[in-house]
Structures are given as structure tokens and as C-alpha cells.
Design a protein around this nucleic acid. Sequence first.
DNA 1: CTGAAAGCGCTTACAG
DNA 2: CTGAAAGCGCTTACAG
Lengths: 356, 356
Amino acid sequence: MPTPPASSRVTLTDIAAACGLSRATVSLVLRGSPLVSPRTRARVEAEIQRQGYVYHRGAANLRRKASNTVALVINDLSNPFFAEFAAGVDETLAEAGHVTLLGSTGESVERQQTVLASLLEHAPAGLILSPAEGSDADRLRTLLRPGLPVLVFNRELEGRDARNGWDYLGLDNVRGARLATEHLLALGHRRIAFFGGHRDSSSCAQRRRGYHEALADAGIVPEPHWLVESAPTRLEAAGQTGALFLRDPAPTAAVCYNDAVALGLVAGLARRGRRAGEDFAVTGFDDIPEAAASFPPLTTVSVDPRARGHEAATMILQRLDAPAGAPFAHVSPARLLCRASSDVRPADLSPPRATP
Amino acid sequence: MPTPPASSRVTLTDIAAACGLSRATVSLVLRGSPLVSPRTRARVEAEIQRQGYVYHRGAANLRRKASNTVALVINDLSNPFFAEFAAGVDETLAEAGHVTLLGSTGESVERQQTVLASLLEHAPAGLILSPAEGSDADRLRTLLRPGLPVLVFNRELEGRDARNGWDYLGLDNVRGARLATEHLLALGHRRIAFFGGHRDSSSCAQRRRGYHEALADAGIVPEPHWLVESAPTRLEAAGQTGALFLRDPAPTAAVCYNDAVALGLVAGLARRGRRAGEDFAVTGFDDIPEAAASFPPLTTVSVDPRARGHEAATMILQRLDAPAGAPFAHVSPARLLCRASSDVRPADLSPPRATP
DNA sequence: CTGAAAGCGCTTACAG
DNA sequence: CTGAAAGCGCTTACAG
């Protein structure tokens, strides 16, 4: 018996023919319609099994003018924050029977346009977009068909009418940084640095705002040298550690832009003979998995990116069911997790050991 | 002027009608055919711009029996190794104009079947699969149409005829662990532990094999208590640190299953008053970003998951061009990166400080 | 409960 | 270089 040519796909027509039924009936079986008798259904299902038939969702979607696909565009998966977010999105979408079309921008507005254009040709039912830094609402709008459900995540868009009827899910960066700063103030710290991040990034600007607000409430005006910038990576942050100690009196604590920067600072302190949580207080932001496992464990602000992914997917799925309706903007609360890295009062600071 | 109903999609027919051309001609323009005169092309392109036409790749794919989509199925994006791999795959696919369909299994064979079935209904041109632990080649084959280009990554499949004509891209776990062990041997260590990982995981088994081979070549038979298992996470590994020191003489060095475990061990040692790279030698595996930035920097085996992602995408793209041909199996070499965490000879071990 | 016909948006020969 | 016709694999009214 010659094997059938691998090229010829088994279609619904083949199943119908083998069962002596019309294609319409088989189609009803495929979609679980109650109009079909159990006996017919069983026959069709057996035949599907026998011939190894695979539903062609693209054809169905074309005919129905529908789609079970959602496009997810993020900065880059090598950032654990986005990786966790993407994992959460994909998990929830998959549970609902949807498929994730993945795109990444590498924080480039140009690549974002290209990647979006390519994804949109697949006619996704919705879009979850974590915009690249500097994204412009007007340029994006030219790509997106009116009526496409869009959820903007994590970063507000620039440009007039930036909200544009799109849904928004953000993180409470201001309040998160404020909580961290207030925690250090409550321990008695007065000279508190804001360490790491680039001032022009919107999330850094928001976190700095929270820091400034908390200090202002305590009647403290930060010295310029308490504000240290660095790329948001461990290595760069470790290298900037010295900038905190250029002038006397030096800060006794630092609110860090994120966990990567905070861990870099902890390493940088170690190299200078200082121990976080013993002679300097450190807080992070993000609660990446390493935060709890590092030594000392890192006090940080939890934003739970995986949960945010679930949230984002749920929001877009709702919107698919009800395309109309006022856009919602939700800002997820940030929670402070107190751990050992900040567990020191200025009065108890042990004197730093001499730098080797 | 009333706005046109948002529901009615602009199609190629609309463009053709507006230009007074046939649909075939417009189609040629869309695909950049040289058969069309420059004037006609310009007119069509202007009209496309004007009406905001978006190519419907699903319809085109249906007609052409082709696809520019590749399915990527991995364990979970919250593992940085897979996140980097996925980033590499997506990057290379996007450059080639393909779109990534993402699926994750959470290391569950059942979810893998479901997720694959859902992705395959979208008729991807190819599949990159990092199989869940315990995946069976026969069960997978029932889902995959014969002739679908498949690249298996990272883990060999179980079951008879497991290769099954599919391409394979693996990591040289055996040689990587051997390199790390030989490095410690060359420094003079004789009591070397293998720390972390679950024995039944295939990558752990392979890394243990390399460790055993290197010891055997040096005429060393490992003591049972040198082999310590743990979940492949920092926290679990830190908790298992004590197991290394239950018996005298204790090991002076450890080859760790991966970087997460190695960093956990470094933290665990610190809690016991021991410093990696000063009174104990530690090596990791994976070269995650933190490895270079931790304190001390971690000696590790580099497998460069992002580069492996590029490689995997390139392999599958080649296979799309040339579906036939013998399957290839490529094992990427592992490289040892020597850093401070292993930079100590047994003769120079400083005596451990007393446990607090 | 089942079937014949039309059509989703595109491309593919084939003729001119 | 351009156009009329058929068809990719499915679903949707509409009849029966």
C-alpha cells in the first residue's frame, strides 16, 4: 500500500466524503454543535482520528472574520521582568484557547513599527503592547486598525491624545518608591540616596518622584550627590557605587531604581568592605526571584510581573468579548517586602572596614 | 462626510477598484513583482496608503499553502535560560520576516500535547520544540503532520526511533562539566563535589557523567556524600550547603549543576562563614548574566542560550527552504569561563571562620 | 438533524 | 504588462 503523498493535507471535505456526509455537518461536529446526532458525531470523530485530520484555524478565521490570536509586543525577553510578564500573558491566553504572537522591539521605536506591522498582517484579535521608550501614539495609530482592542502596559504613550481609547495597565512606581523611602525614613535614616536608572526613562522618573515626595514630607531636601545614575544593570551599578561616597557626610541608605541595580550596589559595597544591611541600608524594586535568595535578602518593592501578565491577558480577553465601552486604566499597587538588606538603623551602623 | 463603518476591512479588491485595475495586478504589486510597470505600482501604493490597507497574510497563506509562522514551544519563560533562547529565536525569525507563535509547557507532558495541538491548528511552517521532561517521541508524532520541519532543542526524546527524522540542537553538557572538573583538578583539588540538580533530569545526568569521567581520568573515585541533590534553584541550593560538610574530610570544591545552584551555594557558604574563591572553590553552568556580576564573580560554563536561539532559528529556516535531506544533529560546544569563585588552590585555603 | 450554494481575502495558472 | 476564472479550507445562511 503506497503511502499517500505527504503534501496533500486532510481536509474537512475528506472527512465528509469518507462518512458520506456534507461538509456543513462535519463543520458542526468540529465546533461541538448540539444540532448533530450523537451517532453522527461519533462516526465523524472516529474518521477524524483515523485520517489524522487537523483543523485549519486560519481558514475558519478567514471565513468567520474572527481570530483566536493575540499579539504580544514587549521590549526584550532577556529582561526577567518582561519574561515573567510574557509568561503570565501566554499562560492565561493559552488557558482561554488563544495563541500568542510574540514580537520584541529591543526598545527601538523603529523596530517596533516593523514588528507590529508584521504581526498585524496576521489579523490578531487584540494587542498587548509594552511600548518602546519614546513611542508616539500617533505613529502607532497609523498601524492599528480602528476598533482593534489594545492594552498598553507599563509605560504611558507620548503624543497628543495618547490614551486614544486604548486600555492601560501600569505599575504604581511613584507609590512603590515612596513606600521604600518611607521605610528607610522610619528606621531613622536621613541621608538617603536614589541610586541607579536613567533619569529620562519614564519609570525611573516616576520612582524618583515617589522618593522626592517622601523626603519632602519628612522635610528633607536631597543633596545633588545623593542622586546617582547608572544603566539599569548589576555590573554598571556596581561600578557606580563609589559615587555615593565621594562627599562627606555620605548617605547611609539608598533607594535603588530596581533589583538589578540594588544587587549591583550590594556587590559594590562588598568590594569596599561594606555590608548591606549592616553598615548601609539598601532597597530594590521588582522582586525578581534572586531578591529573596541573595545574601543578604533584598528589601524590595513587589510588582509581580507574572500576575500583571495574567491581568493584562484577562483584560484583553474581556475586551474581545465587549469591544465597545469606556477604556479602563488600571494601576497595579506596589507592595513593600521588608528583608534584611535594609534592616539597619543609622545609630547601629557598624563602621565600615577599611577598603582593601 | 460620514466615516466608513469600522467593521468593513479594506481589501485588495477595494484597492483594485479604486485604481481601475484587476485584483491580480494589485496582488503582484503587493508581492513586489517586476511584471508591473513603475507607474502602476506607484498608483497602487498611493492608494494602499490612502485607504490604510493591511495585507491579510492568513488569506494569502491559505491560498498559497504556505506560512510565515514558526511555532516555538519551551518549558517556561521565567527560566532565564529559556527566556534568552526564546529571545534569540524570535530575533532571528523576525529578521527573516517570520512570526513566532509562542507556547509553554511548564514541564508538563500533558500541557505540551494541548499547547502543541493548539499551535498546530495555525499551520506553522515549522516547529522549534524544547520538550518537556519525559516527552515521548511517539506521542508527539501523532500530533505532527509528516513533513513538518521540527527542531528539537536541548533534550533528547524518549521512545523508540526518537530521532524520527527531526533535527536536533543540543548542548555539550558532558564536556562542559568535564571542563569544570578538570579545571578544579588542575588547581590541585582532589575532593570535588557535584552539587545540585535532580539526578533524573537528563541534563543533570549528562553533567554528572562529565564530572565522573574527569575524576576517573584522575584516578579518583567520588565518595557518595560528594553527590548532593537539590532543586535547581538558589534557595534550595543554599539550604543544601550543609550536606557538603557532614563528614570529614569535606570537599574543598564543588562543580555545580547550574549557576542558580552555584549562587545559592555561594550564599550558603557565606552564611557558614566560608567565602567562595577563598576557602572553597565553586563552578557553575549556564553563564547567566548574574554570573559575571556576582561577588565573587562565578567561574562557569557558557552555553550562550541567546546564540543557541539564533542557531535554532537559522536551522529551522534552512529546513523550510530545503525540507528534504538528512536530519542534522548539532551539539553546541560549551566553554569554560574562569573567574574568581574557583580561583583557590587547596594548599591556599584559608581556614573557615567559626559558624556564628 | 442534513445538504447545496455562496463567500472570507488572497494567489495561481492561463490567455491576451 | 493586465484581466477573468478557479480555488485554498472553512462557515454561514437558507431550505428541506
